[in-house]
């Protein structure tokens, strides 16, 4: 029996040591996901807390098929979605809105200098609705149809939000990289 399977069985039996072990092993990665989906640290902590309680409550539903980490991640993302739906109203954006082209060409941008923490900050600066759509599409790999159902918006709105998120991200990456260079070069 694999190590994680033993821990899961221990958690199902209510073994506190296994519960803590499961949390210690996976909380860092899942907290990063929570930070990515939330606007502030407090909200991220709430999502992680609620997410882990759901994980423990629903462990008996895990069929040991597929990635356990992926299964936990889906629960945490869904928790973030619930929080988002309860806190924010989504405004429908017309699909025919003109999308401004980025001022800089991303092909020529120097992305190499950015670290994961920089990317996190850039994502978190996005307006909530853009951040949700970008995370769900670009990071989690959901289609616009699926995102539309999750956020109660149309496919077109999801596409539009993604385009706007990408534009903002490209701009921010550019300015962030420039700022970093200035700091490094003095």
């Amino acid at each position: 029996m694999s190590d994680i399977k033993q821990i899961i069985l221990g958690c199902l039996d209510g073994n506190r040591r296994d519960q803590e072990l499961l949390y210690r092993r996976h909380s860092s990665k899942l907290f990063a996901v929570c930070l990515q989906y939330s606007g502030n640290d407090e909200e991220a902590r709430d999502i992680l807390q609620e997410g882990f309680i759901k994980i423990f409550e629903n462990l008996h539903h895990y069929k040991h098929e597929g990635s356990f980490e992926g299964w936990m991640r889906r629960i945490v993302v869904n928790t973030a979605l619930e929080k988002f739906r309860s806190r924010h109203n989504l405004y429908r954006i017309d699909d025919i809105d003109t999308i401004t082209e980025p001022e800089s060409d991303p092909d020529n941008e120097d992305y190499a200098g950015l670290e994961a923490i920089d990317l996190l900050y850039i994502i978190r600066e996005l307006p909530p609705k853009y951040r949700m759509v970008f995370n769900l599409y670009a990071i989690e790999g959901y289609s616009h149809k699926e995102i539309g159902k999750m956020l109660h918006i149309s496919e077109g709105t999801s596409k539009s939000n993604l385009s706007r998120a990408r534009i903002i991200l490209q701009r921010r990456v550019g300015s962030y990289t420039g700022l970093k260079k200035k700091v490094v070069n003095g």
Binding site: S28, L35, R45, E115, A116, L119, A138, I139, V173
Partner: peptide
């Protein structure tokens, strides 16, 4: 942009 962010955050961890 998608790939850049996806790869950049792939192994990212933060201690809660």
């Amino acid at each position: 942009v998608d790939i850049f962010f996806r790869n950049g955050l792939k192994e990212f961890e933060v201690l809660p």
